[in-house]
């Protein structure tokens, strides 16, 4: 959507500059209602969507719309800054951190604090009603418009104010930004306080610990799936969590191996036993695509943990029966 013209409701003729307007242009009115609705929806989306990425996108949308409103209100500089700094930089920072923390982790919508929702709703509604009531009471029916203030261009006017009347605040805010930058660096910086271990020391330590001598087993990448988040299967067909990287485990982003897949593995083992002599290598790579033997992940991707565990148990029972 293109930027709306700055219809301050003030006629450009000099004589009428002092007259206050009471209404904006029709175009702006229409734009307000359409964009306002979208902005509210975006805000609701930010609050209500389970996945943080979706929230972030909704928020970005709302911010862009707010940028348009700034422009509509004659704040051209702020509108641009809003898009460039907020939507561009800040939101990107958010997304960046989101990626760090785990992009696909969804918030559980189950409330853990007793009465928190009711209190939040009550507070929100109360505050909203009060604010609206307060604004209604303010009874401002006319407005000046920034046409005259912006006469020499919005940016020069702002700059004039900023470097005259608000120069002290400006300097202080600059210092604040510097401090914030230093603070963030300090917070995330980790000092290495001890000598990093050599390979030999690491190996000796591992032997001493004695829990996992050989390297950790690889994920199911080579076995069945072309993904690091799919656990590798142990010889008895059970998936091993050890094969998944700790970060993915922490984020809860381990894909479960579906029950059906386990059946198929069992069948595969059976067939292997049947066709003795034939190398596994040749069978796996030498044969053309067989849909029945294909252990695709499309069907088991969404299965929950409990189901997967049950399936795992069943598979183990089958193994035992054999």
């Amino acid at each position: 959507m293109p930027a709306l013209p700055a219809t301050g409701g003030v006629p450009s003729s000099g004589g009428a500059l002092t007259l206050a307007a009471t209404a904006t242009s029709g175009g702006e009115t229409a734009a307000f209602w359409v964009l306002g609705t979208i902005a509210v929806l975006g805000a609701l989306g930010t609050v209500l969507l389970r996945r943080a990425v979706h929230s972030a996108l909704c928020l970005a949308g709302t911010m862009v719309i707010l940028a348009l409103f700034y422009l509509a209100n004659g704040a051209y500089f702020l509108g641009i800054v809003q898009i460039v700094v907020y939507t561009g930089a800040v939101m990107m920072l958010f997304l960046f951190v989101l990626m760090l923390v785990g992009v696909s982790a969804a918030d559980s919508l189950k409330e853990t604090l007793k009465g928190q929702r009711w209190l939040a709703a009550a507070c929100g509604l109360g505050l909203g009603v009060l604010l609206v009531a307060g604004i209604g009471q303010a009874a401002v029916h006319t407005f000046e418009g920034v046409g005259r203030a912006n006469a020499g261009g919005n940016v020069p006017a702002l700059a004039t104010l900023l470097f005259t009347k608000y120069v002290v605040a400006f300097e202080v805010v600059g210092a604040l930004l510097t401090v914030a930058a230093v603070g963030a660096t300090l917070l995330t910086h980790r000092e290495r306080i001890e000598k990093s271990k050599s390979q030999r020391e690491q190996a000796e330590e591992r032997v001493k610990r004695g829990t996992q001598l050989p390297p950790l087993p690889a994920p199911g990448v080579y076995a069945r799936h072309n993904a690091v988040d799919r656990p590798g299967l142990l010889p008895d067909g059970t998936p091993s969590e050890l094969t998944i990287s700790a970060t993915l485990r922490d984020r809860g982003q381990v894909r479960e191996v579906g029950q059906e897949a386990l059946h198929r593995v069992a069948a595969l083992e059976q067939r292997t036993a049947d066709s003795h002599g034939q190398t596994e290598h040749g069978r796996m790579y030498g044969e053309p695509h067989d849909p029945q033997r294909d252990v695709d992940d499309a069907d088991d991707a969404g299965q929950g943990g409990r189901e997967a565990r049950k399936a795992r148990g069943e598979a183990r029972e089958e193994e035992a029966a054999k």
């Binding site: 009471t22 209404a23 904006t24 702006e28 009115t29 307000f32 306002g36 902005a39 509210v40 805000a43 609701l44 930010t46 609050v47 943080a52 929230s55 972030a56 709302t62 409103f69 209100n73 958010f94 951190v97 989101l98 923390v101 982790a105 918030d107 559980s108 409330e111 853990t112 928190q116 929702r117 209190l119 939040a120 709703a121 507070c123 929100g124 509604l125 505050l127 909203g128 604010l131 609206v132 604004i135 303010a138 401002v140 029916h141 407005f143």
Partner: peptide, 29 residues
């Protein structure tokens, strides 16, 4: 339309944001 409508809209957005702060658990959200 009076520009006060923008203020009303801001109040609504503000309230929604406040409710979000109270309801959501993910620090980033």
């Amino acid at each position: 339309m009076s520009p006060v409508n923008y203020v009303y809209l801001a109040a609504v957005l503000f309230t929604i944001g406040a409710a979000g702060v109270l309801i959501r658990r993910n620090a980033i959200v």
